[in-house]
Design a protein around this nucleic acid. Sequence first.
DNA 1: GCGAATTTGTTCTCGGTGAGAACTTAACGG
DNA 2: CCGTTAAGTTCTCACCGAGAACAAATTCGC
Lengths: 385, 385
Amino acid sequence: MPQLKTSADLRVHNQTRLLRAVHDADEPLTRASAARALGFGRNTAAALVGELEAAGLLHEAPAGASGRGRPTTLLLAHPHGPVAFGADIREDSWTLAQIELGGRLTELETGEHDRTPRVFDDILRATRRHATDRLASLGIAIAGPIHDRRRLHISHLGWDEVDLDEQIGGDWPPTVVDNDARLAGLAEARRGALRGTGTALHFHIDFDIGGTLLLGGDAQRGAHNIAGEFGHMPLTDSGHRCMCGAQGCWSLDVGTNALVRRSGREPGYGAGRELAREILARAEAGETEAGRAVDDNAIALGRGLGALANALDPEAITLSGLGLELIRLRRGLIEHACAEGLMKFRRARPPRILAGTVGEIGPLRGAAEIAFDVALNAEWLRARL
Amino acid sequence: MPQLKTSADLRVHNQTRLLRAVHDADEPLTRASAARALGFGRNTAAALVGELEAAGLLHEAPAGASGRGRPTTLLLAHPHGPVAFGADIREDSWTLAQIELGGRLTELETGEHDRTPRVFDDILRATRRHATDRLASLGIAIAGPIHDRRRLHISHLGWDEVDLDEQIGGDWPPTVVDNDARLAGLAEARRGALRGTGTALHFHIDFDIGGTLLLGGDAQRGAHNIAGEFGHMPLTDSGHRCMCGAQGCWSLDVGTNALVRRSGREPGYGAGRELAREILARAEAGETEAGRAVDDNAIALGRGLGALANALDPEAITLSGLGLELIRLRRGLIEHACAEGLMKFRRARPPRILAGTVGEIGPLRGAAEIAFDVALNAEWLRARL
DNA sequence: GCGAATTTGTTCTCGGTGAGAACTTAACGG
DNA sequence: CCGTTAAGTTCTCACCGAGAACAAATTCGC
């Protein structure tokens, strides 16, 4: 519940609602339609928009007339309005992109990194190269849990307890950092296949399974910002000991490592993704051995999804990464295994299992979105008006 | 976010905040302290309270002076203000209680039932016996999932798809029905050991494990109101097939049924609880066989808690039912098994595992609370003022 | 026992907010 | 070309909470 007390708060609150509606809309809103959607009179809408335009947060442009009546205006990003940058740190490369009001994402730069925390310097330098005074905030997606938004663990880079405060200092723009799978889920909820769902799950399947619970379009973070390690629940009783320290982890049976191990090869982060792609290709070409490995992967995936659905009752589940291939090749197996893991009384209406539609840039988009959220916030707006 | 647009909404919103603060407070609030806590001026507080008192929702009584300065008034439930009833349907009995603003719970009546849906008639009749025109709403706690808030499943009563709309008709007061474990968790979050936690889990352990994820003091319901069946995730790979239709369910290894089965007896809902009590007593008296059974139960409990903590990152976990005994007798085992299930990097700060403090009336209190929530809502208030 | 200090209640003014009504403007359509 | 339709504009109005000044009720120190 927003801290909202005075009538001045009310104005800011309504302007925030308006900006949020403009940002989240699929197509640009018109002033008249926004007023209708939010329940304002035309007079009030004019006042709200007027102030926002004067503050350089919104730009009005004549809308092409559509039907009878006086034409209205489109609500667009102001050419000098705030923007946010999003960055995605992957295994050996990073990407920086810019987002503006309305959600348009523009890729700015891509680079490689040396798998050490020096990548933060690369990103800072790239940010400096592209930053103008419009930059409000920077969001970074990272492939690992971020304990208390500060301590960073990335097993496949060998980062154990990297302290973010030592990497991101006072000379950075306002910066938020979050887990890539969570951000990919957020992107699906805001712009993808989960738009409008109340309770949903998203899983990004790579070496490992990361995910997030999405409630009302919001990715949950837990008490220490490390929620979402669904891959480290023993949902498929593999019995193997996991590098994470626990035993029988789900992601030992699902993901590229599992696919590689099941095919008799030694899993390793480096070549694992390549090998997995090869196994998928062979399976698609009809080789039985590879097909079996993919089957097992899909079954283990479905089994875990069913178990999680029992506990969390999602309306839909989206997948990204290897999950997209598994859906494409083995949708039936996944759904069947999921149904077997579901309690009987749930089977008539199982959760929809969907391919994510945001694509590979999910973490990047999510990072940009949470960065831009900084500027869609009542406090920020109050200071800017 | 509340639908809050006009300045009139603002008044109702602030009055709702005030009533909520009064209701949730541990001790009665004074007018002055409430004003300070919510950030109002003394003038505004006077206006808000005055209207609420005139509407019969709040009663002011002189507060015993405490220190210097002009004495203020206590904010209490109005003698003709709204109340809600809560009911708890257990295995073969039910209880009806009344709650009023501030949270005072008064037991009204208890009865037995014949394990058929006729219990709803009993509750309706009891409600009629005690209802006055102060009654705003009735909440009912039920030991089973309630699909879409309508279709009811209680395995140990043999209820498969009982349609609530056929039981609760137009002659009922406004009625909300929810799962008992979820309501017990809500009670812990509002009045018990989870007060003030942002992310928490609660589990009620009986024949089975039911639970709920609590976020910001709110029990999550999922997309179809059937979230919380954590007991039906395969967290301990028992391999057994479960009555629920899935396999390897956690609650096959934790709970009274598991305790009984582990002791070589035939689990059954009827005598199971008695047998379990007996086994616990023997374990406490030092019998090795019974002790082993309790050990296994505690270990399986801890193992599952660790897995769930990986995924959901709770700040604290509370237990009720058999869980209280397991904490009392085997806290060390539970915590050790939990730590083993946790990812290594989490072990330095594991979730606190706590005994619930609300006690056996958790579901009853939770039911009363969600019923009373109806009257702490802006829409209801707007109509009443 | 009395005045100072302290805390709260009361009253009044003021700037600000959105609603609503009346009117104006700009398109379309026959 | 004029009626219809939809949106923008302007003005009044009820209402809200902030703030300041003042009154009231208690405690504390001497």
